[in-house]
Amino acid sequence: MSMLARVQVPAQARRGDVFPIRIAIQHSMETGYRPDNFGRRIPKNVINTLTCRYNGVEVFRAEMGSGVSANPQLQFYLRAENSGELVFDWVDDSGQRGSERAPITVTA
């Protein structure tokens, strides 16, 4: 099953406004320190990189490790410049990729 995510972006913003962006991703974020029921180590599998592009320009990048909780949530701020699209991409240690898009309308 593909990785599920929720993104919170204001549908509209005025040019120059600074607004918060939130993204939550459903992921178990296996730390690599837990044993399974047979005592075998469960391999580490976390979302190691997440990027956000605003009209093609990378505006945010996060590199995460085993200290981040399951189902991580990130929040950051952007300044509204032009209408367009925010594109989130992320990848976990198993190589599974996820992506999410959110349109944004900037008014003068």
């Binding site: 929720r6 939550a24 399951a70 949530q73």
Partner: peptide, 12 residues
Amino acid sequence: DFGNPGMLWVAR
């Protein structure tokens, strides 16, 4: 409602 991680299951 956004921060509540349970909403991921609701969304699914």
